[in-house]
């Protein structure tokens, strides 16, 4: 597998007097979480293979403020938002793509009121567009014929009404697509949203990700596809908890496409 990625920062392009077509917002998980970094790399491989002219903010990117806002700290959220907006507006950013539904929601819906107006796409939507424009061909490869379900992230599905883009991509894998018992608007949360990712769950009878994993196990899948780095963490933990590591894999949409295409 080729491991050199072709990634420019906004600053580098600016120095050359260039502007990218789209800003890839990597997000904190995508930048720092070991598992999520694989998703980031897979997505960049696809962008490189298609020849998308993109850039990242690199060290100029800072948390969108989503977890602070959901944890009730509106001050910190707005401080983060204003900082990021200043940076992005200085680069005259018009279009953003991100692999994290939480960043996606915040950038798309909550930044405009603070002076940051951008066209924001989740990577599933961006990839769907590339596919429809004929630029991206999804091969499927090793995933052909595998039994796959998509676990809807709350902030993409219920939160922003996007259920179709991820499914449109998965269909191209030539896999056996099945729906989980609770899906789309009735999809069950993985348990990480609302800043839960960063704390122990409150006392209860069960962890939310285990409850969700039971839906997944019931569907007897080979692969559960996710579209969010936090869902990735929760589902991966769930698989471990159910001791299904051998037979059940968790992949992000970008990974399925990149690996299926042999990237």
């Amino acid at each position: 597998m080729s491991s050199t990625l072709n990634v420019n920062t906004m600053a580098e392009l600016m120095a050359k007097g260039e502007k990218p077509e789209v800003l890839f917002w990597v997000g904190c998980a995508g930048s720092f979480d070991d598992r999520a970094k694989k998703i980031t790399r897979a997505f960049v491989k696809i962008l490189n293979s298609v020849g998308v002219n993109f850039a990242i903010l690199g060290t100029e990117e800072s948390c969108t403020g989503d977890p602070a806002k959901r944890a009730g700290n509106e001050f910190l959220f707005q401080m983060q938002a204003m900082t990021n907006i200043q940076v992005m507006n200085a680069y005259e950013v018009k279009k953003i793509v991100t692999t994290c539904p939480h960043c996606f929601n915040t950038l798309k819906n909550e930044y405009p009121g603070l002076g940051g107006d951008y066209e924001v796409l989740h990577h599933s939507q961006f990839l769907q567009k590339l596919m429809e424009e004929g630029k991206l061909k999804i091969e499927g490869g090793e995933f052909k014929g595998k039994k796959i379900s998509f676990h809807d992230p709350c902030y993409l599905g219920r939160g922003n009404g996007e259920y179709e883009a991820p499914r449109a991509l998965l269909e191209q894998l030539d896999a056996e697509l099945v729906e989980l018992k609770r899906c789309k608007s009735k999809g069950l949360c993985c348990g990480a949203g609302g800043a839960q990712m960063f704390k122990e769950a409150e006392p209860g009878a069960k962890e939310v990700n285990i409850e969700r994993m039971e839906d997944v196990v019931e569907a007897s899948l080979n692969i559960v596809a996710v579209g969010c780095p936090f869902c990735m963490t929760m589902m991966t933990d769930g698989v471990k908890n159910k001791e299904k590591e051998e037979t059940l894999k968790v992949y992000d949409l970008a990974e399925l496409i990149a690996e299926g295409n042999g990237l």
Binding site: R70, E74, N109, E110, L114, R158, G159, N160
Partner: peptide, 9 residues
């Protein structure tokens, strides 16, 4: 508005 959008105080 989209359900996931929270108001900016």
């Amino acid at each position: 508005k989209p359900r996931a959008e929270f108001d900016n105080m």
